[in-house]
Design a protein around this nucleic acid. Sequence first.
RNA 1: GGCGGAGUAGCUCAGUAGGUUAGAGCAACGGAAUCAUAAUCCGUGUGUCGGGGGUUCGACUCCCUCCUCCGCUACCA
Length: 688
Amino acid sequence: MNRQFEKILVTAALPYANGKIHLGHLAGAYLPADLYVRYQRLIKRDVLFICGSDEHGVPITITAEQEKTTPQAVVDRYHELNKKAFEQFGMSFDNYSRTSLPLHHETAKEFFLKLFNAGILKEKKEKQLYDNKADMFLPDRYVEGTCPVCSNPDARGDQCEKCGTFLNPIELKNPRSKITGETPSVKETTHLYFPLGDYQKKLEEYISAADKRDGWKENVLQYCRSWFKEGLQDRAVTRDLQWGVKVPLSSFDRKVLYVWFDAVLGYISSTKEISNLKKKPDMWKEYWLNPSTKYVAFIGKDNVVFHCIVFPAMLMAWNEQGGDQYILPENVPANEFLNFEGQKFSKSRGWGIDVDEFLAEFPADDLRYTLTMNLPESRDADFYWKDFQARVNNELADIFGNFVNRTVTFVHKNFDGKVPEQNKLRAEDEQIIFLAKRCAVNAGEFFEKYKFRDATLEVMNLTRAANKYFNDNEPWKTIKSDPERCSTTLNVCLHLVNWLAILFEPVLPFTSEKIWKLLFHTNVPNDAGWVSVGKFLLQSGNPINQPEILFNKIEDETINKFISQLPNQQNPALKPMTFKPTVSIEDFQKLDFRIAEVLQAEKVSKSEKLLKLKVKIGSDERQVIAGIALHYKPEDLVGKKIVVIANLAPAKLMGQESRGMLLAASDEEGHLAVLIPEKIVLDGGIVK
RNA sequence: GGCGGAGUAGCUCAGUAGGUUAGAGCAACGGAAUCAUAAUCCGUGUGUCGGGGGUUCGACUCCCUCCUCCGCUACCA
């Protein structure tokens, strides 16, 4: 069933260097990966933990343009910020690389060339519109023009909304770029495609076999099934862009590898980098090319298709050519998403909190524990400030912190700060020792199965049992009545502290170190390892340090401050405003805005958002389709005076003709407010 | 509208080869203790397992249907 692997290779999704990481990222991929790796190190497995920044792709170039800087400057900034945030959070990567390094470019090119030379990649020629001013090929939706079928002047590049015809952007008459407004020219471009469909059967077999061996998560299998059900399609490997890994073919200059292709290879180049840094240039092969290495890829659910389907298919394609044989992920334990106070993290709405901001206020272990106990392992979960406070105060501080504190304080008050003698063990002593050993076994099994919440709960329950042991043995009484017994009790308690430091190390590495220093005057808990749980490592008579408070409680005031800072109507999140390109007054005057009275309104059948309105504009009556059904009931609008664009080209929506468009304001969350004149005006009136 | 996911205790969540009285943590209530960051430990749940129907000796678990929520998508303001 569970093969015995010599080595373990762990990767965590490469964060995109176009923004800061937030708590959702941690809960989705990074924390679980770190927990797994730290546990594996404690049981002395040979494990290598790889990550790095994903630094290519269009969004980064757009950020660079907006900030009037270069893509390199953008990725430099976020690479450093995220690397630092990860360190502060206690991520124990063996290497944190970046895909803009030459080493990565070489690796990606090598991979690409192998597939290309083997004839795996399919070449497809296509004509695309090219924006000379922006110096780029335009994606379908970035083009507008006149529909060749119905002459609608505002047809989109992919489809005319008036007549419903599916279009190729080059068929448009009078096309214009949505980016610069310029008239694009037609250029032929050639792209290479990876034939994912050819690998579908092998991929299904691979996933099914790996699932049988290592037990894949149900949600991950679900995502894969739905992809297989739809059938895998060819996927473009190349792209017309400047920023990225240049395609190493003379006929493909000015093109780069599509970011999905190069990003996953970043794991390999990051491993190569650490090999070079360690002066063991072939070390990476002991992991990637070694069939007795277990490869586990930690990701968030948005990445399932890349790690369960695309990346394995790429590796299969490589392996088919003979030579070096790469291993495939043995498991891809993707988590669902962590929401924040009941809503999705959203940068644009200012909803959520970034890791660096959080850690400026609270210790990393507080956050690690709270997130671990609330990981979205099988479905979306939520981060609540109140829950965070409760977990830190009631569990970390009261149960764990207090146990350490009461034990160490007692030893200092009654045993001169030296490890008390262990005398004859009684049944109750053996019992708690047994519980500790069993806890190590149970928690260990949970770690192996990627069930980190259960593993940590197990350890917290042992901590409860430790408190009970202290209570039941009443050392504050036996110190007078039976000092020998008291000595044994405290000896056991100190060892419990020691074992808890080991058991909690994956979750609370910083605290674990503090405890180790307290007991042994060094700070390397890993040396003892998981097997030391249940063993008596403390020498009687050895001095221990004075206790320090391990977990400070979080006051209501502190938490309320953060809660009140959440964006809302009174407290909107400000983000830099960006506007569309300037237009002339003549352009504006082409638009004919009019006051209209709503005579009738009804829902468009089979549509969620559309309302069919009959409106009166002076002597004119017409039908207008408006996408406001989620926010207005038909009866709310009847009789209201609204603003419409009267000379907009007619369009057909869900089979209904719409002549004109009503004006409504919307906010970031998509709430709509129909514009209504502030004073009574006659319908037909001009709006300017 | 289409596809997918979810709906279990006041809160956050576990719970699939269908099987004994449906679980954990927190909160709440009662009690014990006083070494400790007033911290600890023990005890306490009449939960329509979203509603309804079906299969079965037996359904939280399988099938059908309906309701609600979330995501993607379509329609787009």
